[in-house]
Amino acid sequence: MRLFWSYGLFISILCIIGFYCILVTYNLIRALVGLEILIKAATLLIIVAGYITGHEALAQSLVITLIVIEAVVITVAVGIVLGIRSHNNSLDARKIRNLKG
């Protein structure tokens, strides 16, 4: 389990980087980059879980599915971003705060 914590440390730092990026940025594309980094952290966590329990085959099949899903989600998200851009010609999140929350 010592091994798990040394990976867990880096995974937590990666999560912090991703969350910070999403919270602080005003750029829509960069928010998606932050999401990608979060997904990377989850991917690594699954692989590490498979490695320390000796379930590498299961973990790999989960990660393959996860990567396919990730690609589709990001494609649709890019479609939405381009839709926003075609309306107000900018990727700045400050220009889109029409909604009250």
Partner: peptide, 13 residues
């Protein structure tokens, strides 16, 4: 970490 197949997917996709 003994996961070569997933690594290939990660690299290509």
């Amino acid at each position: 970490l003994n996961s070569p197949l997933a690594a290939v997917f990660e690299l290509s996709v």
